[in-house]
Design a protein around this nucleic acid. Sequence first.
DNA 1: ATATTAATGAACTATTTGGTTGACTGTTTG
DNA 2: CAAACAGTCAACCAAATAGTTCATTAATAT
Lengths: 122, 122
Amino acid sequence: MVEYIDTRLDYIFSALGDPTRRAILVDLLEGESKLSDLEIPYPMSLTAVSKHVKVLAKAGLITHEKRGRERYCKLDPRAMERARTWLHHYHRYWERKLDQLDSYLTASKIEEALKKHRESKG
Amino acid sequence: MVEYIDTRLDYIFSALGDPTRRAILVDLLEGESKLSDLEIPYPMSLTAVSKHVKVLAKAGLITHEKRGRERYCKLDPRAMERARTWLHHYHRYWERKLDQLDSYLTASKIEEALKKHRESKG
DNA sequence: ATATTAATGAACTATTTGGTTGACTGTTTG
DNA sequence: CAAACAGTCAACCAAATAGTTCATTAATAT
């Protein structure tokens, strides 16, 4: 069964729904970075970046830690795995349905062929 | 490289960020359904369901078609594949980084061992 | 022909989101 | 110490979201 009630998924998928936040995540693949070094695709204030970072942290997609006057962010891959797992289960379920449909079609074709065979003999 | 600027992904991930909409998608795995037959986990008006369906359609996650007075929805798996692909690439990139880190660590261990070896001989 | 049903549209509300600016805190540097 | 820097806080704003209700349209059933 594919679960859909999972508050964490709400946060994760919603966080992924914004291009700035996806950009931050992709940036962090290269390793940790302080806030003001993050590569942001659209110009915006540091305050705005700080808010996006908060959203990502709330979703569990990153962790962050203040060192001196700088705040360093780094990926926490577990949240992303949760999203991947959901999509994976969904996909597997979908594939299974396709298989069932396929074997149903095969079965009905066999039925049909048998019927024709019987008719030709009758 | 992992892309992050893709307006469609914005719609797809945002659509997935809501439990009602995920429920609708999971429901539709069983096959097409008319609006008023969708299994909605939280009580809400049909108008609200209709809006969620619109969001899903805009994201490309479903298609819908009016037959008589009823509107039937069914999955369009391509949008979901897009999300899966993004997460997949992201994950692969992450794994590769881990591998690099791993071989870096291995390399530095070898370095260290060699150094010790030389020292013991020197 | 009338009543019922499925869905949509319009108007409204409350909350959230994504951004801004300006003032402030704490850290580093000259 | 003073200046510059990194980040946060608070207040504000516009637009989007998630829901409501009531009226309406169009199709179906009695």
